[in-house]
Each structure stands twice: as structure tokens, then as C-alpha cells.
Simulated assay, not measured.
Amino acid sequence: MKDYGHEYADIFYYTPNEFEKLGGLWPLRTGHNVAKANYSVGARIIECFSFHFVLSGAVTLSSMGETVTLTKGSMFCLFPNVKYSYWVSEYDPDSPLRMCWLAFNGTQAESLVRRIEITEQKPYLRNKLTTEMEELLKACMKQIGDRQKDGDLQLQILFYRLFEMLSRPLHDVMEDKLKACMQYMEMHYAEGITVADIAEFTGMHRSHLSTRFKQCFGISPRDYLIKLRMERAGEMLQDGALSITEIALSLGYTDLYTFSRAFGTYYGMSPSNYRSSRMEPPNKMLND
């Protein structure tokens, strides 16, 4: 990758031939980057359409008076002659902003963009990038970079496949992500995981994850984690095989105090009182 000051990037330019221009869609450039902490683009305009896909990290986009933060798996579109700017947000050297992009034009370009429900007012889609789509983008990049003989038809096929993938219903992808998120918590809740860990696992921004998870399941990820731990804590306290400290450590808490405070908030009593109330023998009925 070449060092451009605010990013490391590979950029490939493409000049469509006359045959390609007879079709409805043709590429102009593509590339991928790794952003530095000072990464910022714009404000400016371009004269074509350009899709940008977020591979990791987070980017903030400003266009048409709106500002939005997009994370791994999201994509946005730059429209011709519409002023825009975007920059790195929440820079993390261990997970920097990485993007790939595909600029294009053609008589069908605008219709295809609007077909996937992207507009100047809402130029982005969240959680849209799949593994299949990422492989397709790599294939497009390779095809453009290699400029293989007689590769123009193959490149057009790849382009239309990309739009077909982007046209697939978003809610199915989101529902699968949220179900995977729930399964992840149910599997690892006793290992001290946090909502931030869950967001990283799903590739979603933490606040967006919390909103969509609650919409789908009626409970926030944080509260669901607490529910899993507290229900298991209640079972372990009734069993009586472990001390309260051992239960706390077994459920991923760092110390007894943190566990006891969480337990008291959830059940309205201390773990020791809960254990005593559940382990007392039932009162015997007195005969008259």
C-alpha cells in the first residue's frame, strides 16, 4: 500500500471501452485503504457514484446536512455533485478504519442505486456487507487491476451481481446477526464478556446493537447478560455446593462485592439472604 499521509491505500483506475459504454454500468476506479488517526476526506464533490464499504473500525459521514457514524459491515454511497465529507471516528490502532470502494457510472447507475433504497437523503445501509459480497468486491478489484484481455464482460457480470446482493432484504441479515448475538451471550455469559465484546463480535456499533436488539427481543443486551448471570446465580445458590465468592468468580465477576451489588439490584436481597430463604425447610403444618 502507498502512504498518502492520512492513509495507506491501493487505488486502481479504469477507463471503460466503447463496448462497455453501450451497457448500463461501468467502473471508473476501485481500491482499499487503512486509515490513520488523522484520516479525513472533503468537503468536496465527485462526478460519479461511489460505494464505500466499511471492513473494520468506524467512519463518520456528513452529507446533505446529516451526519452519521457507520461501523464494520455498513456501506455508503457518494452521489454525483452532492457535497460530502467523511472522517475516521473512534480511532483504535488495534482495529483501524479499513474500507474498500468502487466508483462507477452508466445510464443505469442511478436507477440501480435507488433500487437498493439508497438516496441522497439516506446514502447508507447498515450491516449489509456479507462474506460473499466481500469476496465479490475483491474479485472486482482484481479484475480492474489486472485489466485482463476480454475481461469486460466478466467485470459487468460482477457489477450486476453486486447490485443483486445489495438488493437482498436487509431484515433477514439483521435478524440473523441478532440471533447470533443472543447465542453468543448464552454461550459465554459466564466468561466476563461485555456489551462492547458483543458489538465487536457482531460488527455493529454498540448503540445501534442495543437499539435493534431491544426492538427484536424486548430487552437490551446489557439486561439480557444480567438476566443470564442472575438466573444461573440463583440456581447455584440453591444448590449449595459452592460458596458465594466461588459463584461470583464462576459467573465472570472479578470480586464478591461487584457480584453482590448486581445480585441485590436484580433480586432485591443479598446472595446470602437469597440462599437462606431458598434452603430453609418448609414449615410443618400443625394439626388441630
Rank of each mutant, 00 (worst) to 15 (best):
L178K: 02
R161G: 05
E120N: 06
E164H: 07
M133L: 14
Q183F: 14
K142V: 14
A199R: 00
Q143K: 08
L129Y: 02
R206V: 06
Q121K: 14
R168C: 12
L153E: 11
I198T: 04
S207I: 09
H205M: 07
T131S: 13
R161F: 07
Y189V: 02
M187A: 15
Q148L: 08
M133P: 00
A180M: 09
E135P: 07
L158C: 00
D150K: 06
F163Y: 06
D172M: 15
R161Y: 04
M187G: 03
L137W: 01
L125V: 02
R147N: 08
L178W: 01
Y184N: 02
M174D: 08
F163S: 06
A139Q: 10
E191I: 05
A196D: 13
I118R: 00
F159Q: 03
C140K: 05
A199C: 04
M187Q: 15
D146W: 09
R206G: 01
L136N: 04
L153I: 15
Y189D: 01
H205V: 05
Y160T: 11
I198Q: 02
L170C: 00
T202Y: 04
L136D: 01
H208E: 10
G192M: 04
M165L: 11
T119V: 08
V173P: 00
E120S: 09
M141L: 12
K177I: 13
R161H: 10
E132V: 11
L129F: 07
Q156H: 13
A196Y: 11
M165P: 05
L162F: 10
N127Q: 11
R168L: 15
Q121M: 13
V195K: 03
I118D: 01
I198G: 01
L170Q: 14
L153Y: 10
I193M: 06
K138C: 10
K149I: 13
M133S: 07
H205A: 10
H171K: 13
R206S: 05
M133E: 09
L178G: 04
E132K: 10
R147G: 01
I144T: 00
Q143H: 03
L162I: 07
G203V: 06
